[in-house]
Design a protein around this nucleic acid. Structure first.
Lengths: 124, 124
DNA sequence: CGGGATCCGCGTCGATACTG
DNA sequence: CAGTATCGACGCGGATCCCG
């Protein structure tokens, strides 16, 4: 079933609406990094560990189309493209923060699952 | 790439940890409904519109294994099974609430996408 | 009623090659 | 550097049938 169809069947539920725009784990992780500031394509390629170039491009494209992300291309050689959150994207910060908070608490109470610590998305 | 592998490559990031347990849209929608209280299998089948029986069973199973959901089966005929959130599951309320809040605001500013209003997850 | 088991189509995703 | 294009595998998830 398509995401839109799902949304309709759930009667335009706010939660379903959010899921519709933040559907994949990749987008959440991209959000996590863009909440720290502007990032170049190649930077995201590294910081969002494990993502393929195809999924990064595709995810950024969809997020740009959805108005969450703003793409800024510089006409230089070699090419340089920067991505940053729009105001709409920025407004998702509480969601990502609540995920970071929950994950931190969870890892605190399940030490066996923690190996390396990473900086959570800073509050703002 | 497996979800665990992803987690490792992201250095046990809190956000990635949360995503690992709340990976699918179905689980988020199930959480949304279980946050309102105990539900029977058949009730979820209806309230989580569009979900197939397979995905509902599978999602509930994984959430139970992850310690988010508690399954209570009554030895009666016909069978009766109730699901409710564990303390760990309950602790995810802020995440779902922040999604509901964001979705509500988004729908307010994009009236063309709203058709039917549904009750958001109540604060608690 | 609340599943389990099976089949299988189709979309997702990674890998690879190529380009402005 | 930041993509685009193509191909192929694989697993998600729906459909169906069955059972305690």
């Amino acid at each position: 079933m398509s995401s839109r169809k799902l949304l309709e069947q759930n009667g335009i539920c706010p939660v379903a609406t959010t899921i519709d725009l933040l559907s994949s784990k990749w987008k959440v992780l991209i959000m996590r990094d863009l909440l720290k500031g502007t990032r170049r394509y190649s930077e995201l390629r590294t910081s969002v560990a494990g993502i393929s170039q195809k999924m990064l491009t595709q995810s950024l494209r969809e997020m740009t189309d959805d108005g969450l992300v703003i793409r800024k291309a510089f006409p230089v050689i070699p090419p340089k493209v920067e991505y940053h959150l729009s105001e709409l994207g920025e407004s998702m910060r509480p969601i990502i923060n609540s995920m970071a908070d929950w994950g931190s608490d969870y890892l605190d109470h399940h030490p066996e699952k923690r190996r390396v610590t990473m900086q959570p998305t800073p509050a703002q």
